[in-house]
Amino acid sequence: MNITINGELLNVDRKALVEVLQSFGAVAPFAVAVNSEFIPQSQHGNYVLNEGDSVELLSPIQGG
């Protein structure tokens, strides 16, 4: 299945969002949006990706 993560086209063999994030190397804390829709962390385990989905993985930026 082809999806895009942070602008990078990837072919993945998993559909569960949490599994795709783990295989991508996501390290908490982070926020996730699929097709520009925020997905709460409580739903990561149940969320199923579809062909062509666009995933944005956002890490907090510290500053002052």
Rank of each mutant, 00 (worst) to 15 (best):
M1W: 02
M1A: 08
M1C: 07
I3M: 06
I3K: 02
I3G: 01
I5K: 12
N6I: 00
N6P: 11
G7L: 01
N11D: 13
V12H: 03
D13L: 06
D13E: 13
D13A: 10
R14M: 09
R14I: 00
K15H: 12
A16N: 12
A16Q: 13
A16K: 14
A16L: 14
A16D: 09
L17R: 03
V18G: 01
E19M: 09
L21H: 07
Q22S: 15
Q22E: 14
S23Q: 10
F24Q: 08
G25A: 10
A26P: 12
A26G: 13
V27R: 15
A28W: 01
P29A: 06
P29V: 08
P29C: 08
P29W: 00
F30H: 15
F30Y: 12
F30R: 15
V32N: 06
V32G: 03
V32E: 00
A33C: 14
A33P: 07
V34P: 02
N35M: 03
N35Q: 11
N35W: 00
S36R: 11
S36W: 03
E37N: 15
F38P: 12
F38M: 15
I39H: 10
I39D: 00
Q41Y: 11
Q41A: 14
S42M: 07
Q43R: 15
H44C: 06
G45W: 01
N46L: 05
N50R: 13
E51W: 02
E51I: 05
E51N: 12
D53I: 01
D53V: 00
S54Q: 07
V55W: 03
V55T: 06
L58N: 05
L58A: 13
S59E: 10
S59D: 09
P60R: 11
I61E: 04
